[in-house]
Simulated scan of single mutants.
Amino acid sequence: MTGQEPPHDNRGDEGPPPPDTGAGMTAVTYLIAGMLVWGGIGWLVDHYVGTPGIFTGIGSVLGIGLGVYLIVRRLGA
C-alpha cells in the first residue's frame, strides 16, 4: 500500500522516569542519616560530659524526628 508508514516502535522510547522514582530510598536515607548524625553528635556530647549514653539516645530520637520532618517537607508524604 503506497504512502503508508510502518507502525512506530515504542520499545526504545521510554521518556523521563516518573517524578516519585526513588522516593522510598530517599525517605529511608533521611531516617538513617538523621539517626547517625544526631546520634553521633550525642555520642560526642556523652564522651565529653562523661554520661553513659543518655545524649546518644536523645540525639538518635531527635535525628529520627528531624528525618521524618524532612520526609514530610520534601516528599509531601
Rank of each mutant, 00 (worst) to 15 (best):
residue 73 R to Y: 01
residue 32 I to M: 11
residue 37 V to N: 02
residue 13 D to K: 10
residue 50 G to F: 00
residue 14 E to N: 12
residue 3 G to Y: 10
residue 34 G to N: 12
residue 50 G to Q: 02
residue 23 A to E: 05
residue 64 I to L: 15
residue 15 G to H: 08
residue 45 V to F: 12
residue 38 W to M: 15
residue 62 L to E: 00
residue 58 I to W: 02
residue 2 T to R: 09
residue 16 P to Y: 07
residue 72 V to F: 06
residue 62 L to A: 15
residue 11 R to Q: 12
residue 32 I to A: 12
residue 63 G to T: 09
residue 56 T to M: 13
residue 19 P to A: 14
residue 33 A to Y: 09
residue 15 G to E: 02
residue 50 G to W: 00
residue 21 T to K: 10
residue 67 G to K: 03
residue 11 R to V: 08
residue 67 G to Q: 04
residue 21 T to C: 00
residue 72 V to W: 10
residue 7 P to Y: 08
residue 3 G to C: 03
residue 52 P to Y: 00
residue 13 D to L: 14
residue 69 Y to V: 02
residue 12 G to K: 08
residue 14 E to R: 13
residue 33 A to D: 03
residue 9 D to C: 01
residue 66 L to Q: 06
residue 59 G to E: 04
residue 62 L to D: 01
residue 34 G to F: 11
residue 61 V to D: 02
residue 20 D to W: 02
residue 27 A to V: 04
residue 42 G to V: 01
residue 12 G to N: 07
residue 72 V to I: 13
residue 69 Y to R: 09
residue 74 R to N: 09
residue 52 P to E: 01
residue 67 G to P: 13
residue 3 G to Q: 14
residue 73 R to V: 01
residue 10 N to K: 12
residue 18 P to V: 09
residue 63 G to A: 06
residue 42 G to T: 01
residue 53 G to S: 04
residue 35 M to A: 13
residue 60 S to C: 15
residue 25 M to H: 10
residue 18 P to N: 10
residue 23 A to H: 11
residue 71 I to Y: 03
residue 17 P to S: 03
residue 3 G to E: 14
residue 28 V to A: 14
residue 13 D to F: 12
residue 62 L to V: 15
residue 27 A to E: 09
residue 66 L to W: 09
residue 73 R to S: 07
residue 65 G to V: 04
residue 63 G to Y: 06
residue 26 T to M: 14
residue 17 P to W: 00
residue 42 G to K: 00
residue 46 D to Q: 07
residue 34 G to I: 06
residue 70 L to E: 07
residue 57 G to S: 04
residue 64 I to Y: 11
residue 26 T to G: 11
residue 32 I to Q: 04
residue 47 H to F: 08
residue 65 G to A: 15
residue 26 T to F: 09
residue 41 I to E: 00
residue 54 I to K: 05
residue 33 A to L: 15
residue 15 G to T: 08
residue 45 V to H: 01
residue 46 D to E: 06
residue 7 P to W: 04
residue 33 A to K: 06
residue 49 V to C: 05
residue 73 R to M: 00
residue 39 G to Q: 07
residue 43 W to E: 04
residue 6 P to M: 10
residue 41 I to D: 03
residue 44 L to D: 03
residue 38 W to N: 10
residue 52 P to N: 05
residue 41 I to L: 14
residue 59 G to N: 08
residue 41 I to W: 06
residue 10 N to L: 14
residue 30 Y to T: 02
residue 10 N to C: 09
residue 35 M to H: 06
residue 40 G to R: 08
residue 4 Q to Y: 09
residue 10 N to G: 08
residue 20 D to G: 07
residue 25 M to F: 14
residue 46 D to I: 02
residue 5 E to M: 14
residue 55 F to N: 05
residue 22 G to L: 07
residue 6 P to A: 09
residue 55 F to C: 06
residue 57 G to Q: 04
residue 26 T to K: 10
residue 16 P to T: 04
residue 57 G to N: 05
residue 63 G to C: 11
residue 37 V to P: 06
residue 55 F to Y: 12
residue 61 V to W: 07
residue 74 R to Q: 07
residue 27 A to G: 14
residue 16 P to H: 05
residue 66 L to V: 10
residue 60 S to Q: 10
residue 57 G to F: 02
residue 52 P to L: 01
residue 50 G to T: 01
residue 35 M to P: 03
residue 14 E to M: 14
residue 59 G to Q: 06
residue 52 P to C: 02
residue 31 L to P: 13
